Amino acid sequence: MGSCYVIVIDGLGVGAQEDAGDYGDEEENTLGHVCEQTSCRLPNLERLGLGNIIPVASVPVVSNPLCAHGKMREQSVGKDSTTGHWEMAGIHLNRPFPTYPDGFPEDIIQQFCGGIGVERVLVNESYSGTEVIRDYGEEHLRTGYPIVYTSADSVFQVAAHVDVTPVEKLYEWCAFARDRLMTGEHGVGRVIARPFEGPPGAFERLSEQRHDFSIAPPEQNILGKLREGGVKTYAIGKIVDLFSERYFTQYRRTRHNAEGISQLLSLMSAISDSFVFVNLIDTDQKYGHRLDAEGYAQSLQEFDRAVPAIISKVQDDDLLVITGDHGNDPTNDSTDHSREFVPVLVFPGSCAEQLNLGTRETFSDIACTIADFFGLSADFHGKSMLMKE
Rank of each mutant, 00 (worst) to 15 (best):
V155G: 06
Q301K: 09
H33E: 15
Q285T: 11
D179C: 05
F347L: 13
D10M: 11
F373N: 00
C113T: 12
G349T: 01
S334R: 10
G13A: 12
D282L: 03
V77Q: 13
C40P: 14
G187V: 01
A235Q: 04
S76P: 03
L265Y: 01
I9N: 05
S269Q: 10
A306I: 02
H161D: 12
I133A: 06
I370L: 15
C368N: 03
Q315V: 05
A20P: 01
G49D: 02
K225D: 08
P101M: 04
E36V: 03
G13F: 01
G349K: 11
A159N: 04
D102V: 02
L242F: 08
I271E: 14
H256R: 13
V123K: 05
R255S: 15
C4A: 15
A20M: 04
Y287G: 06
S76T: 07
D284M: 04
V8F: 14
T249C: 04
L42R: 08
D19V: 11
Q209L: 13
S63P: 00
F374G: 04
I53P: 00
N279E: 02
F380I: 09
G32Y: 00
P65H: 11
D241C: 10
G21Y: 14
R190A: 03
Y136A: 12
A309M: 12
A89I: 00
A306T: 02
V346L: 15
R210K: 13
E18G: 09
V321M: 15
Q157I: 12
S76D: 07
T359N: 13
V167E: 10
V155P: 00
L66F: 05
P60S: 14
V118A: 08
L31D: 08
N221A: 08
T369L: 07
A378H: 11
Y296P: 11
Q354K: 14
L320F: 07
Y100H: 04
H69N: 11
F380K: 06
G229D: 06
G84V: 00
L66A: 13
A270R: 15
F156P: 06
P105F: 11
I91V: 15
A235E: 05
C40S: 12
V123Y: 01
P199C: 05
A306D: 01
L170H: 09
Y251A: 12
S58E: 07
G189H: 01
Y287P: 04
E87G: 09
P348L: 06
S81E: 03
M385K: 05
Q285V: 10
G382D: 06
R210L: 03
N52A: 07
H85Y: 07
Y136D: 05
N328P: 01
G117Q: 10
E389V: 08
Y149C: 09
F248N: 07
R142H: 14
D163H: 08
D212W: 06
Q17K: 14
A258C: 07
N124A: 14
F97A: 08
L42N: 12
H381E: 15
V6P: 05
V167L: 04
Q250P: 00
V188T: 08
V59S: 03
L93D: 03
Y287D: 13
G114N: 15
E18S: 15
R120N: 14
H140S: 14
E36K: 09
G129I: 01
D107H: 13
T254D: 12
T283D: 06
Y171R: 07
E87M: 08
R142I: 10
S39K: 11
P43A: 09
L345V: 01
A293L: 00
N332S: 09
G358C: 13
P43Q: 12
M268A: 05
Q37W: 07
